[in-house]
């Protein structure tokens, strides 16, 4: 009994001590995209900040659902301080007043940023692409070269992984229908353009295993449940380089790239701490820490130049890749996302 009490006292003492240490600085709750993305940010960026300032960073993971921020703000119970959010959602959230507007004092000179990586409410956390990839271990027949091949189940048998949402998926359907990446949004905006994309999806539907999180998609690709899938490029590069997986990225099939933005949630307890963090992050040396570890692009132009050339060739913006790509059209998704996602959800359940 005495031993037990002594043990309890020791545990209590230890926990009092750790909580005293934690009181020194409130952690900033930073919400990222999970998995190796968070790991790269933790190792390359946040740990440097904590070492320098003593302010701990608490990591959370999400799927970019703006409604979660909305719910916290409306209930006045805000637990997120800084979030990484896709740029169309940043635009909407900024107009709604969910995010703090950033002054040039925080972000630095706007002319030092790549186009589309700076917004009045956010700075780029990463520039990423959705690419076509296949698992060489399970491929039967020839390798896919285009999205039309991806749709062609006679030529290349096996299931396909596909993101279970309209955004990013309708674009791939248009590529498969023979539209060049640069013309996809022009075609989607035409009357019947969206119907054309859905008609393409009808054709592939029986052969699709849907995914909602990257880890699901990667699990299915690794186990051979699907022979190929759409995926965010760095997740695949990471598996090829670090895990020696027999995956191949088909850049020449055409791809789109977009930007996630760091934004500070207005009214959060860590609002000021979050702004300080972004000010520090806006220095090129500091933000380059992420891209050195993970094959996504940076916001600041000088930061990109700090990434070793050997690694830079994996990025969507590498000269060998970018010629096949086009940028996601934020304006299209700001206007149409909710209506198209509702239609997609109903289509999927049929």
């Amino acid at each position: 009994m005495n031993i037990k009490l002594g043990y309890v006292a020791a545990v209590l003492g230890a926990s009092v001590m750790t909580s005293a240490a934690a009181l020194a600085a409130d952690p900033i709750t930073v919400v990222g995209w999970g998995g190796n993305w968070d790991k790269a940010y933790k190792e390359g960026v946040w740990s440097v900040y904590t070492a320098k300032t003593g302010i701990p960073i608490a990591l959370e993971e999400w799927g970019g659902e703006l409604a979660k921020v909305r719910a916290q703000v409306q209930a006045n119970n805000i637990t997120y301080d800084v979030v990484s959010v896709e740029s169309p959602n940043l635009e909407v959230g900024c107009a709604e007043g969910l995010f703090v507007k950033l002054s040039p004092e925080i972000t630095g000179d706007p002319s030092k940023y790549f186009p589309g990586t700076l917004h009045e409410c956010g700075v780029a956390s990463d520039t990423w692409a959705t690419i076509l990839t296949y698992n060489g271990d399970y491929l039967k027949g020839e390798a896919p070269k285009s999205w039309a091949d991806y749709w062609n189940v006679e030529k290349i048998p096996g299931k396909r992984g596909m993101l279970a949402q309209a955004q990013y998926t309708l674009e791939n359907a248009m590529l498969a229908d023979g539209v060049a990446a640069a013309d996809v949004y022009t075609e989607l905006r035409k009357p019947g353009g969206v119907d054309r994309a859905f008609a393409m999806l009808d054709k592939i539907k029986p052969h699709v295993v849907w995914w909602t999180s990257s880890s699901q998609a990667l699990q299915n690709l690794a186990s051979g449940e699907v022979v190929m899938t759409d995926q965010y490029n760095a997740r695949i590069t990471n598996d090829i380089v670090n895990e020696k997986k027999n995956y191949h990225i088909v850049w020449e099939a055409g791809f789109f790239y977009g930007t996630d933005m760091w934004a500070v949630v207005k009214g959060s307890a860590g609002e000021q701490a979050g702004l300080d963090l972004l000010k520090w992050f806006s220095i090129p040396e500091n933000q380059a820490g992420f891209s050195k570890l993970y094959a996504y692009g940076t916001g600041r132009i000088e930061a990109a130049e700090l990434v070793p050339a050997e690694w830079r060739k994996h990025l969507p913006t590498a000269p060998d890749h970018v010629k096949y790509g086009a940028t996601y059209d934020d304006a299209f998704w700001v206007e149409n996302k909710e209506a198209l996602e509702a239609r997609f959800k109903a289509w999927l359940a049929k």
Binding site: V92, A95, E96, V334, E335, N336, E338, A339, A342
Partner: peptide
């Protein structure tokens, strides 16, 4: 659906 941005 689709009128959020307009209203805001």
């Amino acid at each position: 659906v689709g009128s959020r941005y307009l209203v805001i």
